[in-house]
């Protein structure tokens, strides 16, 4: 596996109320790795991300981020430690402009110091967002809004990005665009944990992939190998 990972989830058990959703999952993300976490509806993948960013606390097991175990952190504290979460449903500021959304991504004092440089870098990565800088974020198309969400997370200057179903609700063409954008971000050396239902796309862009079923890992390995695995071909790729 990975030595000195940016994130390691160690035998974590998670749930809501009395319902156990994740039953002992371990995974790790290396410092320049694009790692996929795939599985069907209700497999527990979003729940794992919510625990990583401090929205919920694990019942058992631990999560280590950047060498330090996290203890009942809240989301804004995890952002302070360098974790950028691109959440499900994007969670933009719809009545603020695209530019304001991006600048808010660097709201924390540490990020604010490098804000202009970060903005230049992010707008070079997403030229379309520079063109739509003055538009209200809520008026953009779904694909563009997803780009804003990714760009806003990048503005933090994070040590790790976690993305929750960025392709959700997008047309196949836009899914390709968003995945290409994620690959561009990963090529800058940014570690990413990408949660998706769209297995085919994840296997195409990621280095390694974990497959989750009913709260348990059933398969993991290099994405190229998994793409040829009989179980994946049968269950997820319909081949």
């Amino acid at each position: 596996m990975t030595a000195d990972p940016i994130l390691s989830v160690e035998d974590v058990v998670l749930g809501y109320g009395s319902l156990e959703v994740v039953s002992g999952v371990s995974l790790a993300v290396g410092r320049a790795e694009l790692v996929g976490l795939v599985g069907g509806n209700g497999s527990g993948k979003s729940t794992i991300l919510r625990a990583v960013s401090g929205m919920i606390t694990p019942w058992r097991g631990r999560i280590v981020f950047d060498g330090e175990p996290m203890t009942a952190a809240r989301p804004h504290q995890m952002a302070r430690r360098g974790l950028a979460h691109v959440p499900m449903g994007r969670q933009l500021f719809p009545n603020l402009t695209v530019r304001e959304n991006l600048l808010l991504g660097a709201w924390l004092p540490a990020a604010r110091a490098a804000r202009d440089a970060a903005l230049a870098r992010v707008e070079a990565l997403f030229p379309e967002l520079a063109r739509r800088a003055g538009a209200r974020a809520g008026t953009l198309s779904g694909g563009q809004q997803q780009m804003v969400a990714i760009a806003r997370a990048l503005m933090l200057g994070p040590k790790l990005m976690i993305m929750d179903e960025p392709s959700l609700g997008l047309s196949p063409l836009l899914v390709k665009e968003v995945m290409a954008a994620i690959r561009r971000v990963a090529e800058t050396g940014m570690p990413i944990l990408l949660v998706e239902q769209n297995v085919k796309q994840v296997l195409a862009v990621s280095h390694r992939t974990y497959v989750l079923e009913n709260g348990r890992l059933v398969l993991d390995g290099p994405s190229q190998e998994l793409a040829g695995h009989p179980m994946i071909r049968k269950a997820y790729l319909g081949l």
Binding site: A79, Q91, L92, F93, L96, E100, A111
Partner: peptide, 24 residues
């Protein structure tokens, strides 16, 4: 002001604000 931007962001989307590091 920065605190004003944080207030407007929280009004727009509380979870989004929390995720960019604002203590809502």
């Amino acid at each position: 002001t920065e605190i004003g931007r944080a207030i407007r962001a929280t009004a727009e989307n509380r979870l989004g604000a929390e995720l960019v590091g604002i203590d809502t």
